[in-house]
Design a binder for these strands. Sequence first.
DNA 1: TATTCTAGTTGATTTGAATCAAAACATAAC
DNA 2: GTTATGTTTTGATTCAAATCAACTAGAATA
Lengths: 221, 221
Amino acid sequence: MPVGLNEHEIHVLGEVVSHKRKIQRGGYLHRAGSKFQSLYAIRSGFLKTCILEQDGRQQVTGFHMTGELLGLDAISTEIHTCDAVALEDSEVCEIPFAKLEEISRTIPSLMHHFHKIMSREIVRDHGVMLLLGSMKAEERLASFLLNLSRRFLIRGYSEYNFNLRMTREEIGSYLGLKLETVSRAFSKLQDENIIRVDNKHIQINDMTRLRMKMGNSSCIT
Amino acid sequence: MPVGLNEHEIHVLGEVVSHKRKIQRGGYLHRAGSKFQSLYAIRSGFLKTCILEQDGRQQVTGFHMTGELLGLDAISTEIHTCDAVALEDSEVCEIPFAKLEEISRTIPSLMHHFHKIMSREIVRDHGVMLLLGSMKAEERLASFLLNLSRRFLIRGYSEYNFNLRMTREEIGSYLGLKLETVSRAFSKLQDENIIRVDNKHIQINDMTRLRMKMGNSSCIT
DNA sequence: TATTCTAGTTGATTTGAATCAAAACATAAC
DNA sequence: GTTATGTTTTGATTCAAATCAACTAGAATA
């Protein structure tokens, strides 16, 4: 989170986020319905958030990696509205929300930064809405891969080679597709030599053509 | 916005939101790409927000009515990411965002309330993602109508009789459907005597069965 | 009043994705 | 190392929604 804060500010923030927590692969960071008290900053690992209905329908609302902030949805009612599940062993910093609000009163830049983070989540969600509302299967998968690629790049990993942490079913849930459709879309992109798929490992051979597949340049964040 | 604020707090807030603005039906409150400076609280009227792609694809990201807050998506980059268009003559209060942040430092309850509003928007978007990702046409329309109905009720209007301000095409864009599919879904619900459709006027005859149509009880906010 | 124009409905057809089903792989457990 | 379990791929078929097209009803304009 610390972007644009000075030394003193970071020090104060450090006292708030002291508490760390590890979650094993498959474990829950929080469950829908549980009481909200803290936001969680991901220090390492990979998580998914998903909402589920009584009729069993599940929707993955996001995949989250290092540096991202979880729990924003729960501020509104102080009840978590989604499950957060670790897709690999992960570590998070707990940020008691009441304390965050308190110290953000004395550190305007922290408050402003927090507002930007919340806003960015809204923008991201709108991007997903566009994807779900108006893109075809292959376009959705292309968007998804480009988005992951960019996020790995930002974190210092290769944008061309990476491992997926989630199953085809989870990708499908996020993209509003069935797992078979996701699998077929992968195969299609591979047949066209745009990507190389080896189980969970993805290699992007032709970034340009992958971007063209998306049909539009706006990239979900 | 004022919920849970005392007299003094409301007075301070009042000084910030003094500036009012009217937008005629069809007019823009703001456009995608324009500089962000203020949030807008809707005093009266009805607006849509939509993002559009260079390839012409458009996605309506929301319909907004009295009491709701617009512009949250723009905080992140200080550029509006969507168009906001009035679907009927509307009036909004301009809330300079820098000032809002400033006074929210001295009024913790105001800050907290603002955070809740942003969070609620995220929850709403997740609901729409669920709808777009996993519901059939008829379920989507049922959700949409129930959501409108509830919002009219909250504002003191009939939950059973109301006029749609948007076209079938705009509904379709919001729900990820083509206008013909929206029209057919309306006709189907009418044939089953669940609603009565007369052009833009909607009458809900059987709220219970409409809820059942949705397939799940969670309602997009 | 006639005349566009836009919005909405309905029907016929096509198409993309879901579903059903089987086989091939991987991963974890024993 | 073998078995069991979960994941992925691929094929055949079905189905829901998109598309294409014709027509109707209102609203706006001349």
